[in-house]
Computed example of a mutant assay.
Amino acid sequence: MAGNGRLAGKVAIVTGGAMGQGAEIVRQFVAEGARVVIADVAKEQGQALADELGADAHFAAHDVSDAASWATLVEDANARFGPVNVLANNAGILRFGEIEKMPGDEVELLWRINQMGCFLGMQAVTRTMRKNGGGSIINASSVEGLAGMPGCTAYAATKWAIRGMTKCAAMELGPKGIRVNSVHPGMIDTPMTRVHGGDAAMEYGASKVPLRRVGHPEDIAPLYVFLASDESSYINGAEIAIDGGVTSTHGFGG
């Protein structure tokens, strides 16, 4: 219930919040006292999650690659719950493809959703946060934003871009009271990753992790809670790997 918990008084937008990692972030934000707008293209799942969580959650159909959709989303969130002071830029898609074979439209789709969507989100909330005492922006990058992986060039390009944008935004927005950090998950068992190989992919991924298991949304969401909370008030421009130790080697091949 809003008013109690580590995120009491926070108003958050979580993109890609209808399923997987995003849905768990939403659940934990609400459990810690935040009021949350679930922003996603998955209308049925997003509305079901909002109905499950009650008055402190609201679903909004949203295309992260569209600036007009962002303007409407932030305006409506401000009117419904009060000034937005947390943005979890969680939405993203995963596509694999060899450099020689990957279609250009697939590459462009990755750029538009992962990279442009993240940029437009930061742009859309900055004015509200600046006018209302600051806030926290949490950008979802990946271990592919820290190291390389064959067949992942286009996807990794977007995740390295998010890492770089986060650093620049932290410097630019820090004086305005807005913290910007990036989270770099490893292989997480979600619908987005399972579509690329199912159980076999999960087993292969686990074999490359020092902890010998893949992650789950419940492993990731607590970091978002921490970065959204005032407990992390001096953390700005950080890149935090949450990957079971993968990046302590040289990527997945280590």
Rank of each mutant, 00 (worst) to 15 (best):
D199P: 07
S207E: 01
D199W: 12
P185C: 09
V214F: 09
D199I: 14
L211Y: 14
C168G: 10
K176D: 08
P175K: 11
R212H: 15
M187P: 09
N181D: 13
M192S: 03
I188P: 05
K176P: 00
S182A: 15
P210L: 15
V195R: 14
G197W: 07
E218H: 06
G186A: 06
L173R: 06
P191E: 00
G205E: 00
L211C: 11
D219A: 03
M187I: 15
G198K: 12
T190R: 01
D199H: 12
P185T: 12
R194P: 01
T166C: 08
S182M: 12
E218N: 09
A170I: 07
M202K: 04
A201Y: 02
V195H: 07
H184F: 00
H216E: 11
G198I: 08
Y204E: 09
T193K: 14
H184S: 15
D219L: 01
K167D: 00
G174M: 02
G198V: 12
K176G: 01
P175F: 05
I178Y: 00
L173M: 13
T190L: 01
G186I: 05
G205F: 02
G197S: 09
V180Q: 06
V180C: 05
R212V: 06
T193H: 12
K167I: 08
T166W: 02
M192K: 01
E172L: 06
T190A: 03
I178D: 03
H184K: 11
P185M: 10
A169W: 14
M202L: 11
T190H: 00
P210S: 13
G174Y: 02
K176F: 06
D189W: 04
K208H: 13
G177R: 04
M171G: 03
D189K: 10
T193S: 15
H216T: 14
A169N: 14
P217D: 15
R213I: 14
